[in-house]
């Protein structure tokens, strides 16, 4: 059934990484990305790999699960690798035949650029796997909070995320019901070519949209009736507090960046 689809890719276990403040995790993820861009040697990448591996172990996330995040990106990865391999200028020729010329510099760049991409994905996956969507939207709202002064809709953004998360299971449930109801009227969602299959979605999508709009209208009224009037003057039920563990994690990432920079200078 459709309702069995897991929400996002949050991996719900309890671990020191899961318990970290979402704001800190967001900031540290950005710091990690910076670190990845600072790396220039294979030793640096080994360091980064070690960091990711240990974090995943600490977060009790199977490494396989983490790797799965790369799968959707494999086409882009291959393309990045090939483009860099063929079109990076260099002097040390490794292979040359017909119009193809591969140099050591090109190979190095192709490998490094691909690794960079892989680590970017691994880092962000680590964030989304260990942080529930609600905590994530909290973190984003609070981090972007100062931007409210320049009329950036940080609260609205977070509210939208929360509501979307609240209604995804409800709408999945509804999709399942409507699909069955149309199947009972002889609708066929599975066979036929692309065009006829797209057409067969109309009896599913129209009722779904109508219902989503009706729900939105009713929800807006219910929220207003509970005195919702935007983010100003609003207090929070859930408060986030930075704990020792957060500062410790901060220190570890700072160390990582330090080592990466050092590696860049020394090697």
């Amino acid at each position: 059934m459709l309702t069995n689809i897991t929400m996002g890719q949050y991996y719900p276990v309890d671990s020191p990484i899961h318990r970290l403040d979402p704001r800190m995790k967001l900031v540290l993820t950005i710091a990690f990305i910076v670190a990845v861009f600072l790396v220039h040697t294979i030793w640096g990448y080994l360091l980064i790999l070690g960091f990711v591996y240990l974090s995943a172990r600490l977060a009790r996330i199977p490494f396989k699960m983490l790797i799965k995040g790369i799968k959707p990106l494999r086409m882009i990865l291959i393309l990045t690798f090939l483009l860099n391999l063929f079109f990076t200028p260099g002097d040390t020729v490794l292979v040359e035949f017909w119009i193809i010329r591969i140099t050591l510099e090109a190979l190095r760049q192709a490998v490094f650029y691909s690794l960079r991409l892989v680590f970017l994905v691994l880092g962000t996956s680590l964030l989304t796997l260990t942080t529930s969507p609600v905590a994530l939207s909290d973190g984003i709202e609070l981090l972007l909070g100062p931007l409210k002064k320049i009329h950036f809709p940080a609260h609205e953004l977070a509210m939208m995320m929360t509501i979307a998360l609240r209604f995804i299971p409800t709408l999945l449930d509804e999709t399942d019901k409507i699909m069955k109801a149309q199947m009972a009227r002889g609708a066929d969602f599975e066979s036929g070519n692309l065009i006829s299959r797209a057409k067969s979605m109309v009896p599913l999508l129209v009722p779904l949209f109508v219902s989503a709009f009706r729900r939105a209208g009713e929800l807006a009224m219910a929220m207003e009736s509970r005195c919702y009037h935007g983010g100003s003057g609003r207090t929070r039920f859930r408060v986030l507090k930075l704990k020792k563990a957060d500062w410790l994690a901060c220190g570890v990432v700072a160390l990582l960046i330090g080592l990466v920079v050092l590696e860049g200078i020394l090697l």
Binding site: L165, R215, E218, S225
Partner: peptide, 16 residues
């Protein structure tokens, strides 16, 4: 004067 509505699904905002 608080109000509760007809559709139980369409008045719950949060995920907990």
């Amino acid at each position: 004067a608080g109000m509760i509505f007809q559709n139980p699904d369409n008045q719950i905002v949060a995920t907990v």
